[in-house]
Design a protein around this nucleic acid. Structure first.
Length: 939
RNA sequence: GCGGCAUUGGCGGAAUUGGUAGACGCGCCAGACUUAGGAUCUGGUUCGCAAGAGUGUAGGUUCGAGUCCUAUAUGCCGCACCA
């Protein structure tokens, strides 16, 4: 019987559904507890374009692990959900008036359908979507808790704000005299979710602010629109309070070094010192941050960030206008201009600071190369040893004093962090490292400054001026925010008549009619009733995309719980995600925010693990592999003659062809389907070709119908996108080859973590393997397997087990192929062998494995089959000594004395019982003797 | 500029603790069966006529290096005026 993959896959998908094969239960009280294992994919944003062939890569890998762990007897949680709030649905809504909810619903349905076809073992009953009120209720809840918490720097954890209030009442005499509003303002400086005027990335085109990780090179990551800096009153999360813990937590988790480095880089811890510099003629000094305390003697000027509060304090009357003009100019510049044009700019403020060590007067400048958001927004400039300061000093003709022996600063600065100090008073003769330490001690002792650690990590801006997101459970009384009570959650997203911002520039929620809070009756009421006595306006912003994705993995543990985000019981059972698979693009966004969020919940005692994701794998991106046809543009060109790729560099075509993208779906193994091309677009209806052998339709109009003529396409690796006609839809592959072939082939493409182009060349080979394997299950016998058969089988078991344990899925497919060909060569029809092969194949190709498993006479499902165990004895009995190497290499190790001569060793090898058995009395091919160590024998 | 990753046949890639480099697949070549085949099966396929050479390049460690070390080139990714 032929391998009818369509029938098999349909049959088993239905069967799995009916038997509720993938339903996962939390153990209750008296249950015998199976060991839990939690495998998670980063949930997708359901875009209108549907899944392409790159999406399932990680999902297949996690599915393999999930199925494998299940066969090993674990209780496996392997859920899937949707990150359903987001910009594209909202922009689509603005353009078409279609409610984002409808678009999202439609897209999710499409995703579910596509995913189902691939045969993932998700428990859809545990699915979540971030736009579901039952879900975002817990996002709002967490926000409320953050609002009601502050970060206790002594205890290094979040504590209820009520503790801070209690302390203030007891210890701070000022507190009692404060008005309610003053108190709220004061507390706002401590809350973990707080409202503040901050400089934000404002994207006028999107009409919203963006977080730092949503901006790249001055453009929005989504859409690529210009972003400018603006000061706005925004909700923020005090992520920076967790900087040190986020950094330390990395040591406890099993992520790749490159990802950890990216996060370390993003957190950007730097140890340095804060120093106070007196201002000439003023009492109050100002503070700077430096990592190079050793270079104080070389400070020849100071620089303030344009946004720094110090600027107004130090600017002199004569210079005021010039400075103001500069500040205005800086403000007008977009982030993009600032990045593109890095010429030195700045102005002198007219004031002088006093170097605390040399007592010299040094001028204070304002320049936009100093950032307001880092350190204190002010620096001491050491032109000799900092390239930025050097450029500035050269531009303004300021003195440059070298501080390290042998440094030549006539052409450029000497940025190295080693050498012996000169021109540096008390530091002279010391190495840089010693000098830094000594200076830190000195300034601490003299009260000039203190040791200080700074982080690059900023607080996350949490407001978005958008419609399609979680509403804040916040209303405003006397212009101060108050939370609606937790028991009233979820605060549902209201209907609006327009998804654009209002005419007076309010966020889209400004259009909502019923969007006010009745404090007394604790309910949402019509906006018209606002009297600011009992009915108050609600917050108009919504939360950003990362809000809903920051704790979703917890909700899967207990997604039907109406009382809590996750019950204590469920959380202490599942604990944390054992294996998390997703793209590297979330390294500084989602993966920082959810670690922060999780740590906050940990402080609250809601979760029992302070890191959410134990092991993380970044699957590589699947790029597109575009195909090209080459239009002839040379002499006598008609515009519809296309030259085969192998001829484009030969006369008369050389230099006269224009590559044109062609739909990869009408190209197979780089050979164009000529008929399909002519039908593809009206323009190509009359296309003529020059084929690979040089023959042409022009000479013979019927040539194109001949079957031995081939038109070869060129190719290139590009981003998978519609405009390049290189998007491959998994549905098409499933239709043509089946889900099992798709699954195997995606794994076969290469290592999971590496980026690679999607290349359909070669998928036939994998499909052929499945067909060949399938044919072996035609008739089965109950005979005892032979030694050779067992050897093949046990080699396979060992290999596949090793592969999955080490996430090396790509090398499993060749192992299956080899086993198949070995067993076929032995004409193996033994049930005892083939049922084990089916069980091994089940994680990779579940449908065919299921069918094979049943042909072997089983009624249960293959996913519940026990994972086969290999037996060294079988491998030994068949004449192979452990360890067995994959390529048929065999190595022995025999201990021998240091100075044993080579031929002696050879004799010893031959005398060795196991060796003799394997060698059949022949001499080994190679004997390698390492004196005093081991002997390796290659046979 | 800083940090990370990669580089192996015509192509994707194997080589798990340093031990016969090129597994497996694609493509290609030859053969078989066919009226035919973009079907199936069998065999071959790193380069070189050969001796030999060979894992980006140049060194080093080692009995032995694709694998470890140093330098260097190229490509990809992340961060970037972070003091």
């Amino acid at each position: 019987m032929d391998y009818d993959f369509q029938a098999i896959e349909k049959k088993w998908q239905q069967e799995w559904n009916q038997r509720k094969a993938y339903e996962v239960k939390n153990p209750t009280g008296s249950d015998k507890q199976k060991e839990p294992y939690y495998v998670l994919d980063m949930f997708p944003y359901p875009s209108g374009a549907g899944l392409h062939v790159g999406h399932p890569l990680g999902y297949i890998a996690s599915d393999i692990v999930a199925r494998y762990k299940r066969q090993q007897g674990y209780n496996v949680l392997h859920p899937m959900g949707f990150d359903a709030y987001g910009l594209p649905a909202e922009q689509y809504a603005i353009q078409t008036g279609q409610h984002p909810e409808i678009t999202t619903e439609k897209n999710i349905a499409r995703y579910v359908e596509q995913l189902s076809k691939i045969g993932f073992c998700y428990d859809w009953g545990r699915s979540v979507r971030t736009c579901d009120p039952d879900f975002y209720r817990w996002t709002q809840w967490a926000f409320c808790r953050m609002f009601n918490s502050y970060y206790d720097t002594d205890k290094q954890q979040a504590r209820p704000i009520s503790e801070l209030v209690a302390r203030l009442e007891k210890e701070d005499s000022h507190w009692a005299t404060m008005s309610e509003r003053e108190r709220q303002e004061y507390l706002m400086q401590y809350r973990i979710a707080y409202l503040a005027d901050t400089k934000v990335n404002w994207c006028p085109k999107l009409g919203t602010v963006l977080a730092n990780d949503e901006v790249s090179e001055g453009l929005s990551v989504r859409g690529g629109y210009p972003v400018e800096q603006r000061v706005m009153r925004q909700w923020c999360l005090r992520v920076s309070a967790y900087a040190q813990r986020l950094l330390e937590g990395l040591d406890k988790i099993d992520w790749t070094d490159s990802l950890k480095d990216t996060q370390r880089n993003w957190i950007g811890r730097s140890e340095g010192a804060e120093m106070r510099f007196a201002i000439k003629g003023q009492d109050e000094p100002f503070t700077i941050f430096t990592t190079r305390a050793d270079t104080v003697y070389g400070v020849t000027f100071m620089v303030l960030a344009p946004e720094s509060e110090y600027v107004q304090r130090v600017v002199t009357e004569e210079k005021r206008q010039e400075v103001e003009e500069y500040l205005q100019w800086v403000k007008r510049r977009t982030e993009r201009e600032r990045i593109a044009d890095r010429h030195v700019t700045g102005v002198f403020t007219g004031s002088y600071a006093i170097n605390p060590l040399t007592e010299k007067e040094i001028p204070i400048y304002v320049s936009d190369y100093v950032l307001a958001g880092y350190g204190t927004g002010a620096i001491m400039a050491v032109p000799a040893h900092d390239s930025r300061d050097y450029a500035f000093a050269c531009h303004f003709g300021l003195p440059i004093i070298p501080l390290i022996e042998g440094a030549d600063v006539s052409e450029q600065s000497f940025d190295a962090k080693e050498g012996r100090m000169i021109n540096s008073g008390i530091l002279n003769g010391l190495e840089v490292k010693e000098a830094i330490a000594k200076m830190k001690a000195y300034i601490t002792e003299k009260g000039i400054g203190r040791v200080k650690v700074n982080y690059r990590l900023r607080d996350a801006i949490f407001s978005r001026q958008r419609y399609w997101g979680e509403p804040f459970p916040v209303y405003y009384k006397d212009d101060m925010p108050y939370l609606i009570p937790e028991k009233c959650l979820p605060l549902r997203l209201p209907e609006v008549k327009d998804f654009k911002p209002t005419e007076d520039g309010q966020p889209p929620l400004g259009h909502a009619e019923k969007w006010a809070w009745d404090e007394k009756n604790e309910q949402v009421v019509d906006k018209k009733l606002i009297d600011n006595k009992t009915v108050f306006p609600l917050e108009l912003c919504t939360m950003p995309g990362f809000a809903g994705s920051s704790a979703y993995y917890l909700r899967y543990m207990d997604n039907k719980n109406d009382n809590e985000l996750v019950s204590r019981e469920a959380n202490t059972y599942w604990r944390q995600v054992n294996l998390y698979i997703g793209g590297t693009e979330h390294a500084t966004g989602h993966l920082i925010y959810s670690r922060f969020w999780n740590k906050f919940l940990y402080d609250l005692g809601v979760v029992c693990e302070d890191e959410p994701f134990k092991k993380l794998i970044n699957q590589g991106m699947i790029q597109g592999r575009s195909n090209f046809v080459y239009r002839y543009t040379g002499e006598g060109a008609t515009g519809n003659l296309y030259v085969s790729y192998n001829l484009i560099d030969t006369p008369p075509y050389k230099g006269h062809v224009q590559p044109i993208h062609v739909d990869v779906n009408i190209v197979k193994n780089d050979i164009l389907d000529v008929a399909a091309f002519r039908q593809w677009m009206p323009d190509y209806k009359d296309a003529q070709f020059v084929y690979s052998d040089g023959s042409s339709d022009v000479d013979n109009p019927y040539m194109g119908n001949a079957t031995d003529k081939q038109y070869i396409c060129g190719w290139a690796v590009e981003k998978m996108s519609k405009s390049m006609y290189n998007v491959v839809n998994p549905d098409d592959i499933v239709e043509r080859y089946g889900a099992d072939t798709l699954r195997l082939y995606e794994m076969f493409l290469g290592p999971l973590e590496m980026s690679k182009p999607w290349d359909t060349n070669g998928i036939d080979g994998v499909h052929r393997f499945l067909r060949k394997l399938w044919n072996m299950y035609e008739t089965l016998t109950n005979e005892e397997p032979t030694a050779d058969e067992l050897r093949s089988l046990h080699k396979l078991i060992k290999k596949i087990t090793w592969d999955i344990e080490n996430y090396s899925f790509n090398t499993s497919i060749p192992a299956f192929m080899i086993a198949q060909s070995e067993l076929a060569g032995l004409k193996c029809t033994k049930r005892a062998v083939l049922e084990q092969v089916a069980a091994l194949l089940a994680p990779y190709a579940p449908h065919i494995a299921e069918e094979m498993w049943h042909r072997c006479g089983h009624d249960d499902l293959v996913i519940d089959a026990e994972w086969p165990k290999w037996n060294e004895q079988y491998l030994e009995e068949s004449g192979v000594k452990y360890p067995v190497q994959f390529n048929g290499k065999v190595r022995f190790t025999i201990e021998c004395a240091k100075d044993t001569p080579k031929d002696e060793v050879e004799k010893m090898v031959l005398a060795h019982a196991d060796t003799t058995k394997y060698l059949n009395g022949n001499a080994p091919k190679r004997v390698i003797v390492v004196p005093g160590k081991i002997v390796n024998v290659v046979v």
